[in-house]
Design a protein around this nucleic acid. Structure first.
Lengths: 149, 149
DNA sequence: GGATAAAGTGTATAAATATACTGAAGAATT
DNA sequence: AATTCTTCAGTATATTTATACACTTTATCC
């Protein structure tokens, strides 16, 4: 079992089962004949950005990344690496320039990412304008977007 | 300092500062002359449902609840307790019945909650119809919604 | 008010998680 | 092919987080 396969399985398991702690993952994998240690799971959690969240019912449960979907994240990363030109903020606005023709796709992904800082998002051919909730949010957004490159 | 005030402050801090571990909270509060121990913070994290999430840059950071805003959650809980009548799923649909006149408010809150399982949501006077992404999601949604009662 | 219950917190510690260190296995380089 | 580099994962352990227990404070009831 390759690491990548395991990652996919973990993402599947975390959605289907209630995983309260990393050892639960170890056990679930063990049931499937896959041997890993808690240490490996801890590293997997980090890479997949899974979080142990307090649940409504008082317990804990591992969850998918809070804010941004893994797939969206992957796509954003790819597109940013491919088509990103520049980024800047002014007041509550974040302006992203891309290679011609890529802004619309980028805007769609940014929408899909559902950043809590974001208020709205419009795009032209090579420009995405993100309107955030305030100045601080704009800066935070800029950082987040840059981090994909 | 009352627990509730502290909770508000924690929610503020977690948005403004990078909090990597619970001790960071203890320190931040200490700076403001508020004395608490890590144990209390752990309990606060649980009640506020804050999560320690792996960050893009490789570190960790405490975050607000992943999927659902604290206020929204509170309101949903209140409204569900007040106005909920019944819930059922069929295929990828979840149908919620409420006391007359409450469905619109409930739908608005469900929208605000931005469940990842949800595709869309419409409402009448006493009925909310949630369209989810697939059958499994519908069941998961049902559970989540019931859990507010 | 006094009694009783409920909520909140610290201390100490158990439980869970992250990581330094190490070695194995494969890929890349010469 | 030998050497070096990189990735991966286990072991052992450090770090972090959760909680049992005890005590204090606050609310509730009579």
């Amino acid at each position: 079992m390759k690491k990548n396969e395991r990652h996919h399985l973990l993402r599947k398991l975390v959605q289907e089962d209630v995983i309260k702690k990393q050892e639960d993952f170890v056990d679930k994998l063990h049931e499937r004949g896959i041997e890993v240690t808690q240490a490996t799971i801890s590293r997997d959690m980090k890479e997949l950005q899974l979080v142990k969240a307090p649940a409504q019912n008082g317990g804990y449960r591992y969850n998918l990344p809070p804010e941004i979907d893994y797939d969206v994240s992957q796509k954003l990363s790819r597109l940013m690496k491919d088509a990103f030109v520049s980024i800047d903020t002014q007041r509550e606005f974040v302006l992203i320039r891309t290679l011609p023709g890529n802004a619309f796709a980028l805007a769609a992904l940014i929408e899909a990412a559902r950043y809590k800082e974001m208020f709205g998002c419009i795009s032209g051919d090579d420009t995405v304008l993100v309107i955030s909730r305030d100045e601080k949010s704009a800066q935070r957004l800029q950082k987040k977007i840059i981090s994909f490159i």
